[in-house]
């Protein structure tokens, strides 16, 4: 337990936090509506109802919201602070990053006892996030490729139709489902690790994604 007084540092800027929570909301909504599209429940009482219509409308609208959020976050990685920067997500490409990565890994595998404290993303988490973004891109591409099939002469199908030629639309559907499960696997890992590091680091890991502030022993260099 750290008995030291800690300094407040602003780490997660507003766009980072917004993107995070929009993604959370989108993933939950998209998963629920996605399930109902894949395994529909007979909710309609008459042929003039529109339950599946609305479920699909929500799925597609939130898909656009999610896409905008993911793309905005990618753009922000070029203009935001160092903790939001794109370089943060590829720690394995630098010597220092690799060193921290393996230290983190050793801690996770219960080999080391010293908590490797980090200010921004820890290198293990950052690597997981870059993989997660790959899944986001796969979800967006497969999703919109399948969606575009309603208008095979449209611009979207012109842009994404090659995917159906490459892996068939049923293959895309399979990838869309599997990727969702991979994202679920990540979510379990993510919530657990946030909880764990909140307990171990005493740096307000969980509250930082609401407030943007973390707490460190050293004062920020001006």
């Amino acid at each position: 337990m750290s008995s030291q007084c800690k300094f407040k540092r602003y780490i997660w800027e507003l766009p980072v936090r917004w993107c995070h929570w929009i993604n959370v909301l989108s993933i939950v909504t998209l998963s629920v509506t996605g399930f109902l599209i894949g395994y529909p429940i007979s909710l309609g009482h008459s042929a003039s109802d529109f339950t599946m219509g609305w479920i699909r409308f929500i799925h597609f609208s939130v898909a656009y919201l999610f896409t905008v959020s993911v793309l905005s976050r990618i753009v922000w990685s070029f203009i935001g602070n160092q903790y939001a920067g794109w370089m943060e997500f590829f720690p394995l490409f630098s010597g220092k990053g690799r060193q921290k990565f393996f230290k983190m890994l050793r801690y996770y595998f219960l080999i080391d006892k010293e908590v490797p404290e980090t200010i921004g993303h820890n290198p293990l988490a950052a690597t997981a996030y870059s993989l997660l973004f790959c899944f986001y891109i796969i979800m967006i591409l497969t999703g919109f490729a399948l969606y575009s099939e309603h208008a095979p002469f449209g611009a979207m199908h012109a842009a994404l139709g090659w995917l159906t030629t490459l892996v068939s639309n049923q293959g895309l559907r399979l990838i869309h489902h599997l990727s969702m499960w991979c994202i679920f696997g990540f979510v379990i890992n993510h919530i657990y690790s946030a909880w764990l590091m909140d307990i171990k680091e005493h740096g307000a890991e969980i509250s930082s994604i609401f407030s943007g502030f973390r707490f460190t022993v050293h004062k920020e260099e001006e």
């Binding site: 219960l110 006892k113 404290e117 764990l196 022993v217």
Partner: peptide, 20 residues
């Protein structure tokens, strides 16, 4: 993993070795 972590004692990092 969580259960194993709950049972074990961690070491506070040295002030010189910690990042922030």
């Amino acid at each position: 993993h969580g259960a194993l972590n709950a049972m074990r004692k961690d070491k506070e990092p040295e002030d010189s070795s910690r990042e922030g």
